[in-house]
């Protein structure tokens, strides 16, 4: 499978700081996968997002997006193929209504204005915001604003969506909405890759692949069912393993031989009833 993103030996230090924000990081994201990057505050996960989006220029290492090495010259072209959703719902809402906000990206792409209304309606419907098209941002909830941000990103038909802690400022309902929409989108379009930078472990559990960062270094990587069994390592870096994984871990410590393909409560129940 083709890799949509490859990071090789990436190190990054912020200007005027001694400590490295990222240290010798290497990983790759296969096309069409959902990768969760988790880590505690200060683990360097937001820095990583900024580098991938071209908002910070790196010096050491190599970042390859869509098969091309990221640099200043091809950044505008590469940016057209990916979309970012940021943490703060207010600070990425550019238009004065839902309609105008989705149109903002289209205007930048020089989409003819006659076609815009159709596109806006199509993508607003995908995130179930079609009833709020003329609402101003101050009359929307955080979750609704994030949904608009996703619609704005989707309207540009990206191959890769990056969530930079997109759900961390939302209430549980908003969080669930965003995740459901994202998984729904991937069912519709299996080629869409998602990189989600998050500290929501339950979200990471639903991902295809998990990368755990701590203090700029890669600590663990692999399938969620593998990564989250390392409860001790996770605890050391102040991350809680998801409830299911802690349960399996404790069962194994008690001497039970839980197979590694158990990744849901149902499967565990089935196994225990045998």
């Amino acid at each position: 499978m083709k890799n949509i993103l490859e990071v090789k030996n990436l190190s990054y230090t912020y200007q005027g700081e001694n400590a490295e924000a990222l240290h010798d990081l290497s990983f790759s994201v296969p096309a069409g996968s959902y990768v969760a990057i988790v880590g505690h505050n200060g683990s360097g996960k937001s820095t990583l997002a900024k580098i991938i989006a071209g908002l910070c220029s790196y010096k050491k290492g190599k970042v390859t997006l869509f098969g091309e090495e990221l640099n200043k010259n091809n950044l505008p072209a590469l940016r057209k193929r990916m979309g970012l959703v940021f943490q703060n719902p207010d600070n990425q809402f550019v238009g004065s209504s839902v309609r105008d906000d989705i149109a903002f990206g289209l205007e930048n792409r020089q989409v003819p204005s006659e076609k815009m209304d159709g596109i806006i309606l199509e993508y607003a419907t995908k995130v179930s915001m079609e009833k709020y098209l003329d609402h101003a941002p101050e009359n929307l909830s955080g979750g609704q604003k994030q949904r608009v941000a996703i619609a704005g990103v989707l309207a540009m038909k990206p191959e890769l969506i990056i969530y930079d802690e997109a759900t961390s400022m939302l209430d549980p309902v908003g969080k669930k909405d965003i995740l459901d929409i994202t998984f729904g989108l991937r069912e519709e379009n299996p080629d869409l890759s998602v990189i989600s930078i998050t500290h929501d472990i339950e979200e990471a559990l639903r991902a295809d692949y998990v990368i755990v960062l701590n203090k700029g270094k890669l600590v663990l990587e692999g399938k969620p069912s593998e990564v989250f069994t390392h409860a001790d390592t996770l605890k050391e870096i102040h991350l809680d393993a998801p409830f299911l994984m802690s349960l399996i871990d404790s069962l194994r410590k008690e001497g039970m031989d839980v197979p590694s393909d158990v990744d849901s409560l149902e499967k565990l129940e089935e196994y225990l009833c045998q």
């Binding site: 989006a53 908002l55 505008p76 940016r79 057209k80 979309g83 970012l84 550019v94 309609r99 105008d100 149109a103 903002f104 990206g105 289209l106 205007e107 930048n108 792409r109 020089q110 989409v111 003819p112 204005s113 815009m116 704005g152 990103v153 540009m156």
Partner: peptide, 14 residues
């Protein structure tokens, strides 16, 4: 990130 370039040509929604 959404492709805004102040000097580039843009189309108009409204």
């Amino acid at each position: 990130c959404r492709g805004y370039d102040p000097n580039a040509k843009r189309t108009r929604y409204r």
